[in-house]
C-alpha cells in the first residue's frame, strides 16, 4: 500500500507539470492577448486608441516577451505561492481566488449533500421495488435530470420564481442582505437562495448516483446471502441495511474525491446564469478576456483539485475494495 501511494504521488507530480503547461497554453491558443482585448474594449465604446497608448501599455506589461519566458516567470511564482496579478481586476490572483473560494465550497458541499440525500433513498427504493411505478418514475426523473441543459433549467427556474412568486433568486443574497454583516438572518437569506443552484447543479449528479447505486444494490439483492437472510425471517429493512446497501455505498463514498472538483467545474455555466458570487463566472470572464495569469491559475487550481481528488478516491477504493489490483 505504501509503495502504491508513493508511486501514485510521483505520477501526480508529472501530471501536474503537464497540466501547468496545458493551462498556460490554452490561454495562448486564441489569437491576441489581453492587450488586444483591452484595446478592442476601449475602442468598442468609441475611444480612439492611438499608438502612444498601445505602446505604453505593451511596455508596461511586458506582453511582447516570448511565451516560454512568461510561463517560467509564472510557474516560478506559483511555486513560491505568488500566482501573479490579474490584468482585468488589477488585483493579486491569490486574493481574487481566496475571495470567491469560501462561497464556492459552500455551494459545492451543499450540492454534494443534497445529491446524496436525494439519490441514496431513491436508489434503494428503486432497487427494492424494481419495475414498480415508483421505480419508473424515479428512473425517468433521474434521466431527465441528466438530459436537461443546466443553463436552461437555471434560466427558467429563475424567471418562473420572479414571475409567479415575485421572488428574485438571482445571486446568493437578496439586495438588502448583500451589504449586511453575517447574522442568522443573513444565513437564512442565503439558504433561501441556495436551493435553486443546488437543484440545478446537483441534478445531473443525482441522476448518475441513482443509476449506479440502483444497479449495485440490485446485484447484491440477487446474491445468496440475502436470500439466506430472508429465509431466516430477518426483517426486510435489516437485511437490506446490513449488507447490500453498505456494499452499494462503497463506490459512492470512495468517489467523493472526484465529485467535489467535478461540481466546482460544473457550476461555471449555472453560476453565470444565476449570477452567483463564486469562482465560475470569474474564470469564464478571465478566459474571455485572456487575462492569462488569473485564468491559468484557476485552471491549475481546479485541475490540481481533481488530481488530488482522484488520488484520494483511488486510495479509498483500494481500502474499501481489496479486490482492486494496485498497479
Amino acid at each position: 500500500m505504501g509503495s502504491y501511494i508513493i508511486r501514485r504521488l510521483a505520477y501526480m507530480l508529472i501530471t501536474l507539470l503537464g497540466i501547468s503547461i496545458i493551462s498556460f497554453t490554452i490561454i495562448q491558443l486564441p489569437p491576441g492577448d489581453y492587450l488586444t482585448t483591452y484595446i478592442a474594449q476601449l475602442s468598442s465604446s468609441g475611444t480612439v486608441v492611438d499608438d502612444s497608448l498601445v505602446a505604453s501599455l505593451e511596455r508596461q506589461y511586458g506582453l511582447d516577451r516570448p511565451i516560454y519566458i512568461q510561463y517560467f516567470k509564472w510557474i516560478g511564482g506559483v511555486l513560491t505561492g505568488n500566482f501573479g496579478r490579474s490584468f482585468d481586476w488589477n488585483e493579486a490572483v491569490a486574493v481574487l481566488i481566496a475571495e470567491r473560494l469560501p462561497m464556492t465550497i459552500v455551494i459545492s458541499l451543499a450540492t454534494l449533500v443534497f445529491t446524496y440525500l436525494v439519490a441514496i433513498p431513491i436508489s434503494i427504493y428503486s432497487a427494492v421495488k424494481q419495475y414498480s411505478i415508483g421505480d419508473y418514475i424515479a428512473t425517468v426523473i433521474g434521466f431527465i435530470g441528466l438530459s436537461v441543459p443546466d443553463f436552461l433549467l437555471a434560466l427558467v427556474l429563475m424567471f418562473s420564481f420572479y414571475r409567479f412568486f415575485g421572488i428574485s433568486v438571482s445571486g446568493l443574497f437578496s439586495p438588502e442582505m448583500r451589504e449586511a454583516a453575517w447574522s442568522w438572518a443573513k444565513i437564512k437569506d442565503m439558504l433561501d437562495h441556495l436551493w435553486v443552484p443546488m437543484i440545478v447543479i446537483g441534478m445531473a449528479g443525482t441522476a448518475g448516483i441513482i443509476r449506479t447505486m440502483r444497479a449495485t444494490t440490485l446485484d447484491e439483492l440477487g446474491k445468496d446471502y440475502v436470500k439466506m437472510a430472508r429465509s431466516k425471517g430477518i426483517p426486510e429493512w435489516k437485511v437490506l441495511m446490513r449488507h447490500p446497501v453498505r456494499v452499494a455505498l462503497n463506490p459512492i463514498i470512495s468517489t467523493i474525491g472526484w465529485e467535489l472538483p467535478r461540481i466546482v467545474s460544473g457550476t461555471t455555466i449555472v453560476a453565470v446564469v444565476l449570477n452567483l458570487p463564486i469562482t465560475g463566472p470569474i474564470l469564464l470572464q478571465a478566459l474571455q478576456a485572456q487575462d492569462m495569469f488569473l485564468a491559468g491559475s484557476f485552471i491549475l487550481m481546479l485541475s490540481t483539485l481533481t488530481v488530488i481528488g482522484t488520488l484520494i478516491s483511488d486510495i479509498l477504493l483500494a481500502i474499501f475494495d481489496p479486490r482492486i489490483r494496485l498497479d
Binding site: 489581453y34 483591452y38 505604453s56 501599455l57 511596455r59 508596461q60 506589461y61 511586458g62 496579478r85 490584468f87 482585468d88 481586476w89 488589477n90 493579486a92
Partner: peptide, 18 residues
C-alpha cells in the same frame, strides 16, 4: 506587480489596465 517606475506610476494614476 511592477518592474519599472512608469508601470507603478500609471497604475497609481488609474491609467493602466482596468
Amino acid at each position: 506587480a511592477y518592474d519599472q517606475w512608469y508601470q507603478m506610476f500609471l497604475d497609481k494614476a488609474r491609467q493602466s489596465f482596468s
